[in-house]
């Protein structure tokens, strides 16, 4: 466990090929690695480092800057409650207090059964459905206490599995083309017609 699977290694190489410089693939590859186990294991970060031509420390140093990339294990469902201004005005702190009580954990902790990690999020751009919650980056809202309880019950029962993939799985649509323009461009005329009539 931990290493990128052969299928994901292949995907990773296709992603690297999309960028003029391979380090640019670092964050997309971290997302890919995170889709395997829900978090970024040290082994996966080593694989990402090799693919991007950097050291594992550079991968960790970069990944740790970003809220979405987890370098420690998380629950199957990462529940992020937004408490920023629009959600605050709609009762987000009451909601997060309720969530803590209901799940029996504090913000930042994971339930004992590994189902839920509770997070307090910054604005998720769901202010029209405030207070809003993301579960594995899928939106729910507006939510009150009872709404939160039924949402977690549905998740626990696996009834939302289609809508909410496991944590780490971000984009389930794969790019199906390489870069035909770059392939077609002959050396010396990178911008082709667009440059000529400038």
């Amino acid at each position: 466990m931990g290493r990128l699977t052969p299928e994901n290694l292949e995907r990773a190489r296709a992603i690297v090929a999309l960028y003029p410089e391979r380090r640019s693939a670092l964050i997309p590859l971290c997302h890919l690695a995170q889709s395997q186990e829900g978090w970024l294991s040290p082994e996966a970060m080593e694989d990402v480092a090799v693919l991007c031509g950097v050291t594992p420390a550079e991968v960790r140093g970069t990944a740790s800057f970003y809220d979405m990339l987890h370098t420690e294990p998380v629950g199957r469902h990462v529940v992020a409650v937004c408490t920023n201004i629009a959600c605050l005005l709609a009762g987000a702190y009451e909601l997060i207090e309720h969530a803590e009580k209901h799940l029996g954990v504090s913000v930042g902790q994971t339930t004992e059964d590994g189902e839920f990690t509770l997070e307090e999020a910054e604005c998720l751009a769901g202010c029209d459905i405030a207070p809003c919650v993301q579960v594995n980056h899928r939106f729910f809202g507006p939510l009150d206490g009872p709404g939160f309880e039924s949402l977690t019950a549905e998740l626990r029962a696996g009834r939302l599995a289609e809508l909410v993939p496991r944590h780490g799985v971000l984009c389930r649509v794969e790019r199906n083309v390489s870069l035909p323009a770059r392939d077609a461009a002959s050396p010396g005329s990178p911008a082709a017609a667009g440059e000529e009539n400038r």
């Binding site: 964050i27 809220d67 990339l69 984009c171 870069l179 035909p180 017609a193």
Partner: peptide, 22 residues
């Protein structure tokens, strides 16, 4: 998108890049 967009002779590649929360 790609080589020779709509037969114009001009080519473009477009990549969707995901951020990671910042």
């Amino acid at each position: 998108l790609g080589a020779d967009v709509f037969g114009s002779g001009w080519s473009l590649d477009l990549v969707v890049h995901p951020g990671a929360g910042a």
